[in-house]
């Protein structure tokens, strides 16, 4: 022990290790518990975001150019598909309008104020993505100025892609739904089984990064292709946001319970534009 304390290099390395581990533990806890980061961090992040927007521009232009070529090649197939969708869209829109009015009238008749399905939207652009592979964090250009709050659900490409984990003044950090972090708020979800019964559970991530519908009591009745929506339970996100579709049902690693794998509906790979969902009913 005496030798250890006399060896300056070893002692310094040990002190650095302790400081780094302490810093990591404290900052992870603070990020989870605090609603907003410190003022210094917010100013710093805001400044970096301004530079990021400038640097982003040429990179975005190049990436868009490559995407445009790909789009042109797929135009004909996409056009045929969209024409088919367009015919059904007019009818769906009209029906949606009628249902919305009916819903509004019924709520008024019942003296209901806002329900779990009521929410407003804030659209933002992704300006950066965490350069490392294990964190699954996006930085978007909307912050507390736009009314964004911690834990709001974020959608892209028609489905939920994650949740806001940190809100700065002009930017926010979004943690993707595929994160394997332990201390993360999971989405409470529901789906209709083949027998018409509503099945509840939560979304978690398996060891290989696949989304799974877990803590389900009667998962065997969930057929492939069944849509999974947020249930609005747990006081974080509104009801009825699409998470994905049931891909397959297998057994977990112990072979005891069913593991319902979910194919995400949201664009997790390349989300350029995202929509933050502001639930109207308070938590």
């Amino acid at each position: 022990m005496k030798k250890f304390f006399q060896n300056k290099k070893l002692l310094t390395a040990f002190v650095i290790l302790v400081i780094v581990l302490g810093l990591l533990t404290i900052s992870v806890r603070l990020r989870t518990q605090k609603k907003t980061p410190s003022i210094v961090q917010r100013i710093g992040n805001g400044t970096v975001a301004v530079v990021a927007r400038v640097v982003d521009w040429p990179v975005k232009t190049i990436a868009k150019g490559v995407d445009s070529v790909e789009d042109i090649l797929q135009t004909e197939t996409e056009n045929d598909h969209l024409k088919q969708q367009l015919e059904a869209l007019a009818q769906t829109k009209a029906r949606n309008n009628t249902l919305e009015q009916e819903n509004h009238q019924l709520k008024q008749a019942l003296h209901l104020k806002e329900t779990l399905t009521d929410y407003s939207l804030v659209t933002g652009s992704v300006i950066s993505r965490s350069p490392d592979t294990w964190s699954d964090i996006l930085v978007i250009d909307q912050g507390s100025n736009a009314g964004i709050k911690k834990n709001m659900a974020v959608m892209s490409g028609g489905g939920v892609i994650g949740r806001v984990i940190e809100v700065d003044t002009t930017t926010s950090k979004v943690e993707l739904i595929t994160t394997t972090a332990k201390a993360v708020d999971r989405f409470a979800v529901e789906a209709d089984s083949s027998k018409g019964k509503r099945v509840h559970g939560i979304i978690s991530v398996t060891g290989n990064g696949t989304l799974a519908f877990t803590q389900v009591i009667d998962s065997a009745k969930l057929k492939k292709g069944t849509k999974v929506y947020t249930s609005g339970m747990g006081g974080r996100s509104p009801k009825g946001l699409l998470i994905g579709m049931v891909a397959k049902t297998t057994k977990d690693s112990f072979g005891l319970s069913n593991l319902v794998e979910i194919k995400p509906a949201g664009n997790l790979n390349d989300p350029s534009v995202v929509t933050v969902i502001k639930r109207k009913v308070s938590d």
């Binding site: 990436a63 965490s130 350069p131 490392d132 930085v139 790979n269 390349d270």
Partner: peptide, 22 residues
């Protein structure tokens, strides 16, 4: 440092392969 974030965002292939862009 800023470019790292931009490249990671615009080249999704890196995330698919588990590559850190540093």
């Amino acid at each position: 440092l800023i470019l790292d974030g931009s490249i990671s965002h615009f080249v999704p292939l890196l995330q698919d392969w588990g590559v850190n862009c540093w």
